[in-house]
Design a protein around this nucleic acid. Structure first.
Lengths: 221, 221
DNA sequence: AAAAAGTCTTAAAAAACTCTTAAAATTTTT
DNA sequence: AAAAATTTTAAGAGTTTTTTAAGACTTTTT
């Protein structure tokens, strides 16, 4: 169930959109002003429908503020067909727009599409607890801090995170992390695990991540 | 004046759209079938309006064929509101879609938007921090000063700048900068990076631009 | 409870990779 | 065809990563 924040000052339109969303298995949240919208962001919000209410509010600023906290897809609902403004909104991070009056089906389509797009982008990240691996940037973070892993350390952690709760055997490490697993030494693996643990501990001393499975391997707990 | 190829098997609708485009200072080209469309691509075409005519034609294949030749923005005109299909079309390179029946103004807006988006991507300027690449003049500037890069150096920097914050792997460099990436030598890449760095440092000694990602490649930080 | 086997941590050695510089080879321009 | 510019090759210095090794520690087995 996805939660959608509807930012629209006309209480009737807001109600209408909310009802439509509810009918289609979304959880609507209403906000009649930008301030109210920012407060509602404390809830889990998966997508934002934003009426620009021009010229009352500054769309640029609002989108920046909305996106600052978390990367939530934003669809602009706009009465005007001012294309230049739309371009600017896109540049700022609006993901799509729809002009009033619109067909309900059209709105629902664009919502579904934006959610799928966003999900796809998120899927490029690998996460476990507060650890986030970003392959594109080759960056491992824990508690938003950079972990500064070497390539082998990164590969080892990645293998663990892509097998959450499962035991990753030593053989699996040797096969996947080292090209030539014949020459692999268990001690070497130990040392790398130890280093990863100490780096994780520096970031978050209260959490234990890697569990030793005696004689077999390691797993994330 | 932008040329728009209208692919739509219903001759009346095709005519109607073409008239609308002509009234709004576009040059319409009509195609009633995929085959005809591909032939018309010999003309200068800036944008494609594609009616899916489902299930008669395979949208996936057609978009791939249309885009293969040149990267032209494609807007899907669709009678159905099959969102999953739309997602696939997006993945294949459709840039936007509009569902029938649509308002003329809405169609024109989306065309204008797609053209702008595309132009922006194609536009000559690529920037990162105080580095500016100008493809048309083949000139790289930093702090307004000319960097005097060679072709390979320019290509390397361009590849980095078009992937900000992402790691550009050595393989990516070899594939994109050198035609034959088999013969590529890592040492050669090192030397070019070194030269780019020294030229950047001359321009702006206080900034570090290119970060080495050990065993993987480089990235802009 | 002692011995054996396995694991952890640390530091140092070894290996792998990168950087810079200069000279050789190639390509482009004059 | 010579000159200029670019690209590649090569080599040594420098850096980072990976492995090795040793002693302390933990779990399992006897």
């Amino acid at each position: 169930m996805k939660t959608i924040l509807v930012i629209e000052d006309d209480i009737n339109i807001n109600q209408m959109i909310s009802d439509l969303l509810k009918l289609n298995d979304y959880i609507p949240l209403s906000a009649l002003s930008p301030d109210e919208a920012l407060k509602k962001l404390n809830n889990k919000v998966d997508l934002i429908l934003l009426d620009l209410m021009l010229p009352k509010i500054n769309g640029k600023e609002l989108i920046r503020d909305l996106k600052q906290y978390r990367d939530i897809p934003v669809i602009i609902v706009s009465a005007i067909s001012d294309v230049d403004m739309k371009v600017t909104l896109f540049e700022l991070g609006a993901d799509d727009y729809i002009t009033k009056p619109f067909h309900n089906q059209e709105l629902l389509s664009r919502i579904k599409l934006a959610l799928k797009h966003h999900q796809k982008e998120e899927s490029e990240l690998t996460t476990y607890k507060d650890i986030v691996l970003n392959d594109k940037e080759f960056q491992a973070k824990c508690q938003q801090q950079d972990l500064k892993l070497s390539k082998i350390e990164y590969d080892i952690l990645k293998l663990l995170i892509t097998h959450p709760h499962q035991v990753v055997t030593k053989t699996m490490f040797f096969e996947q992390v080292w090209d030539d697993y014949q020459s692999a030494d268990e001690n070497t693996l130990n040392v790398h695990i130890s280093k990863i643990r100490s780096k994780l501990k520096k970031c978050n001393p209260d959490e234990e991540y890697i569990e030793t499975i005696w004689k077999i391997g390691y797993k994330l707990k």
